[in-house]
Design a protein around this nucleic acid. Structure first.
Lengths: 343, 343
DNA sequence: CTGTTAGCGCATTCAG
DNA sequence: CTGAATGCGCTAACAG
């Protein structure tokens, strides 16, 4: 029978005594040191399982100055694509005995700063923060911590340490140019009113860049709406009333785009014939709505796994391949932007 | 200027020396002990902020035998209603200086068991696990840990310690009876094929109970599908081909229900006139789809906050009001089940 | 290859 | 009210 795990229950000294070895030796077999004779290793292992010994990772953290804890901050935890990154991270980290400590900033830099400070007191081995915009103090805290820091979900040249993500700018630009190529004349962009962040900002900039493309210059048309189904519906109403003859709406998020799609359905507007719609994020619903939604896909679970890989590498002292790792994106061209001629 | 936070940087002894007090006194002001003279307290506080001292919570955890860490396990982290529970938990816990350590079981009891064991080695102050079905060993590990354990998202009389949730059974039963009341004759239930768990199981049982209602006995009609949009679409196909004259489909999840709704749209089936559809979970999309979806609503962020409240209470030694806390649910009757006559 | 020792940074006695 | 001492459970350095 294995011993119960109780606070203050059985310690390394107990194992040492039962196995008739020193505490150091037990520690060595625990940490996989090579310098242990096979027979003593076996004996120690046997007593460990006999006594049901479980190492106290808090004590180990203090002694070894390595906690095996990774801190992660995302904007919101519920129903968000950012949670998928955490999913990927935890999958990989768990296999390596590491654990994720999670916090949500609610898109607030002040809150992010507070969480960073609070988390650092717990001595994580590494840090993941969403995005590339942070308060000056956050950057300073993170730099001064001397642990690996990964910023994710976007790319930047001005990273605190290492950035793992994809170019929101390039994706938005490419999607816009694709719409141009398909023959849409008047493409408006719906950006997010509140909770502005670098990802949304770069999507807007990417759209503008496409509008300024030298072979296809056209005025940019931008409106701000709430990042919700309702916000998307509002945008459609605006577009239909506009005097600009808008024939395509590029939403900064799928949530708004789906809201827009549903509003078209309510109003009997044919998509894409009367109005084309594109989004960003490739939510699960995007490929199921009618018509299916053109959007930008990113493998976020994969990104989380990649982040974990890089983090583990860094923790083990290996230098990362680069301090700017691009996981890429894919434009998913679906029915919501299919021109009749291209069908 | 505040000192940088660096591993092994400034310790409590440094503060003590600068403030010309003993380490014990610094510790006392840090932990809000009453037995400190106001002037010495102020002096210590001043030096703390002057030196930018940040307590090492790992060391504190070892010494105090309290880590301020709460362990939480949910089935999946990405795009899941369970993440909302975590969101609520972190919000409350962060205000109290506690932190959440998160893991995902992938609906596997074996994986859950492994994570529980791994997490316990980190000496959390409390544990949250999703659902009420766990392996025998998981239950044993948790009981033996002698820390508060909350099981959530459902209710049971056979709880490890404390359960905070709502009755999936009652909700499913009530929703089914509501459909009966509305005059639907042949109500089939679509349950989940894989990833079976207590919540899904109880929804099925609730449906069956409604079918066996003594005033309204009727044969239960149950099929299993994948818990996905596609699975929902499959179920609609099945219902339409059935010889049972099914006039209402009650899906165990909104994901399947929305998939079913979209399939009806593709096939030109009018909802609810030709086929009524109901779901469970009240996903954000449920109130936006056309027609809007009848479903069961649960305030999951609120449930997470409640769980945190109870956990904090328990950690501080106060007994919980009950070991079975019902956060309730609400049937959201929407257009997808509105009978023409009731409009 | 292995036992012993000295901390890791803090909370908490115990005197005073 | 406060300083000094002890130890939480473990790792790592050091002898041997």
């Amino acid at each position: 029978m294995s011993q119960e795990i109780v606070k203050g229950a059985i310690r390394i000294a107990d194992v040492a005594r039962h196995a008739k070895v020193g505490a150091g030796t037990v520690s060595r077999v625990l940490n996989g040191s090579q310098n242990v004779a096979p027979e003593t290793r076996d004996r120690v292992l046997a007593t460990i399982s006999k006594l049901g010994y479980v190492p106290n990772l808090v004590a180990r953290g203090l002694a070894a100055n390595r906690t095996g804890v990774i801190a992660a901050i995302i904007p919101v935890i519920g129903y968000s694509q950012h949670s998928e990154v955490i999913q990927g991270m935890t999958e990989v980290l768990h296999e390596h005995g590491a654990t994720v400590m999670i916090g949500s900033s609610g898109y607030s830099q002040d809150m992010e700063e507070k969480i960073v400070a609070a988390f650092l007191a717990r001595r994580p081995d590494a840090f993941y923060v969403t995005g590339t915009w942070h308060s000056q103090k956050t950057r300073k805290l993170l730099s001064a911590s001397s642990i690996p820091v990964i910023e994710g979900s976007n790319l930047t040249d001005d990273t605190i340490d290492t950035v793992v993500g994809y170019s929101n700018f390039a994706a938005a630009r490419e999607l816009t140019l694709m719409l141009v190529l398909r023959g849409y004349q008047r493409i408006a962009h719906v950006t997010v009113k509140r909770d502005l962040n670098d990802r949304i900002g770069d999507r807007l900039t990417g759209y503008r860049a496409a509008c300024n493309d030298r072979e296809n210059t056209r005025p940019a048309l931008v409106i701000e709406r709430e990042n919700s189904f309702t916000g998307g519906a509002d945008a459609v109403a605006w577009a239909l009333e506009s005097s600009d003859a808008i024939d395509a709406l590029f939403f900064a998020t799928d949530v708004m785009a789906v809201g827009g799609l549903l509003e078209c359905q309510r109003r009997g507007i044919e998509v894409p014939n009367q109005l084309a719609i594109a989004g960003f994020d490739d939510l699960p619903i995007a490929s199921s709505v009618i018509p299916t939604l053109t959007t930008v896909h990113v493998d976020r679970v994969g990104m989380g796994r990649k982040i974990a890989d890089v983090l583990l590498q860094r923790i083990n002292g290996e230098p990362p391949p680069s301090n700017r790792i691009d996981v890429g994106f894919q434009i998913r061209e679906r029915d919501s932007t299919l021109k009749p001629s291209t069908r």
